[in-house]
Structure formats: C-alpha cells, structure tokens
C-alpha cells in the first residue's frame, strides 16, 4: 500500500513546494508562475485560446507518424532478421543514417513534403521507424537457436514460423522500441511545430514565448507531459496484455 501511494504523493509534494516558493516570492512568478495559476489558466483560459485545436493537431501528426514508423519498423526489422541478404543490403544504410539527428533533416523534409501536416508526420515516422527497426532486429536476433531448431525438426510452415515464433519471440524487444519511439515522437512533433506550423502544441509553446504568455507556455508544456504519461501508460497496459508470458509483467 505504502509503495502504491508514494508515486502519487511525491509529485503533489513537489508541486506544493513550487506553489509555496512562488507565493512567498522565492521564485519569480514572471518565469515560474504558481502551479495553481497554471492549472487555472489551462482549464479556463487556454480553451478560449484554442488549445483544443492545438492538441488535436499535434495528436493527429503524432499518431499517424508514430503508427507509420512503427509498422514499417516492425515489418522491415522482422524481414531483415529473417533474411541475411536483405540485412546485408540494408544494414549499412541504417547504420549510416541512424546517428543523424532527425531534427537536422527537418528542413529537407519540409522542402520535399511542404510545410503542412505531412512533413511533420514524416519526421515523426522517421524517428519512430529507426528506434522500432533496431529494437525489432535485436529482438529477432535474441530468439534462442533452440526455437529455430524445434521449427526445423518439426517442419513448421514459414508463415507460422514468422507469426507464431519470430514475432512473439521478438515482441518484448519490439515493445522496448515502441516505448522509446513514443517519447521520441513527442519530441519530434513539438520540435517540428516550432517552425512552419500554424497550430499544434509546439506552435503554442513557441508562440507563447514570442508573446511572453508564460502561463500559456506552461499549459502547453503540461499538456505534452500529460500526453507522454498517458501514452506510456497505454503502451505498458498493451504490453501486459500482449506478452502474458513475460515474467514480472503478468499479474
């Protein structure tokens, strides 16, 4: 019971200290408004300023980009894990392009895909793709040889081998990729909205900075944080559901 409460108490405690510091003047409220003021702003002022549209715009870019990147990453990761020649052909390209900070190619992406939603979806997809691909490949590699042997001896059909042995065997590693990718996607969507956007949470934060609307800026930051929390939680729940055999995950 004690350990279930601590995760809720500690953030509240931190907010409380912040609140006290802001109210007693230890913190400069021009830069660090009290949490109560931020929440008031988020609930009563931000909707008037159109934060709902910003949230929907960001969610739209985030989810499509994330889904596309993850699906492509899983498919290519499994394919590369299954085929030595495909891996030999593609791996050097991945190794060369993976270390490039994806934000560095945003201008290029905007050049190709325009400044609309598509370029933001693409940049999120690219970021997710690499993380999921690399983790999926690692997952396929980590499947013990004995399972390959069992399938060879019992002449398991290829589609069953891929869908019922390789995919579930790689699933824990795939989930590691999916979790990393959701965090990275949030970064990419906010960063891509800093420039060349007319709505979105990133746009809201940047706009608020330019107009010195500090509370709006904090509202945007809080929304991004909440999104990250919700998505992580959802992925965790999905993992528990899809990987009931993972010791420690199953209840």
């Amino acid at each position: 019971m004690k350990y279930k409460l601590i995760p809720f108490i500690s953030p509240i405690f931190a907010l409380l200290i912040w609140e006290i510091c802001a109210r007693t003047g230890i913190l400069d409220v021009r830069f660090f408004p009290a949490p109560s003021a931020i929440f008031y702003h988020l609930i009563f002022v931000s909707p008037e300023e159109g934060i709902i549209d910003d949230i929907l715009a960001s969610l739209n870019r985030l989810l499509w980009g994330y889904l596309a990147g993850c699906i492509l990453g899983i498919i290519l990761g499994i394919s590369m894990g299954m085929s030595r020649s495909l891996r030999a052909a593609i791996y050097p390209i991945i190794a060369l392009t993976y270390p490039i900070p994806k934000i560095a190619i945003l201008p290029l992406i905007m050049l190709v895909f325009g400044i609309g939603d598509l370029s933001k979806i693409v940049i999120v997809a690219i970021g997710s793709f690499f993380l999921v691909l690399i983790n999926t490949l690692h997952g396929v590699d980590s499947i013990e040889r004995i399972y390959h042997d069992v399938c060879a001896v019992y002449k398991i059909k290829r589609h069953n081998f891929i869908l019922k042995v390789i995919l579930p065997g790689a699933l824990p590693a795939i989930f590691t990729g999916l979790k990393l990718a959701i965090g990275y996607s949030l970064v990419m969507v906010v960063a891509s909205e800093f420039s060349g956007a007319d709505k979105g949470i990133g746009y809201l934060i940047w706009q608020s900075w330019e107009t010195f609307s500090i509370k709006s800026m904090y509202a945007g930051i809080f929304v991004i944080g909440a999104m990250g929390f919700i998505f992580s939680y959802a992925l965790h729940a999905l993992e528990r559901r899809l990987i009931p055999w993972k010791p420690g995950v199953s209840g």
């Binding site: 013990e144 004995i146 399972y147 042997d149 069992v150 001896v153 019992y154 019922k164 042995v165 579930p168 065997g169 699933l171 990987i243 055999w245």
Partner: peptide
C-alpha cells in the same frame, strides 16, 4: 517424420 526432445527450454515460452 522425426521428432526431437531437447535438453530444456525447447518449449515456446509464449505458448
């Protein structure tokens, strides 16, 4: 038709 029983871990953990 050949069958094989392995030392251990031969059964699939996800099934």
């Amino acid at each position: 038709n050949i069958g094989m029983v392995f030392q251990e871990r031969g059964i699939f953990p996800w099934m």
